[in-house]
């Protein structure tokens, strides 16, 4: 059996490109609605339906979460979309913010 010749020059080992997941680049933002006891429950439900296009059941679920737990995470979006939703909710004077999802 013939011996395998050792190449004079070994192939260079190219280190892998450092990659980052999409979430590292844009971590995503949580759109949060906080409880302001002044807002009518029917009003908050209505706003969620209008802004997110949700059905009444889903809108009421999040409204009750805001009411009982003090806040509700409404959606997770890219920076631009989260800003858009926060602005839409604030147009209705709801207490909404966006926080990085870390």
């Amino acid at each position: 059996m013939a011996a395998t010749a050792t190449p004079a020059v070994r192939p260079a080992v190219r280190p892998e490109d450092e990659t980052r997941s999409r979430d590292d680049i844009d971590p995503g933002y949580l759109v949060i609605c906080w409880n302001d006891p002044v807002n009518l429950m029917a009003y908050v439900t209505h706003v969620f339906m209008r802004v997110f296009g949700w059905n009444k059941q889903k809108a009421e679920f999040h409204m009750l979460q805001v009411h009982r737990q003090g806040k509700s995470v409404l959606t997770r979006e890219s920076l631009e979309k989260a800003e858009f939703y926060v602005h839409q909710l604030q147009k209705y004077t709801l207490h909404a913010t966006m926080e990085p999802d870390r």
């Binding site: 302001d36 002044v38 807002n39 009003y43 209505h46 147009k91 209705y92 004077t93």
Partner: peptide
């Protein structure tokens, strides 16, 4: 609705929230 709720929330803030 937006205008009225601004007036409502603003009054609540004026009351000390």
């Amino acid at each position: 609705l937006q205008v009225l709720n601004d007036v409502r929330v603003g009054s609540w803030i004026a009351l000390g929230s």
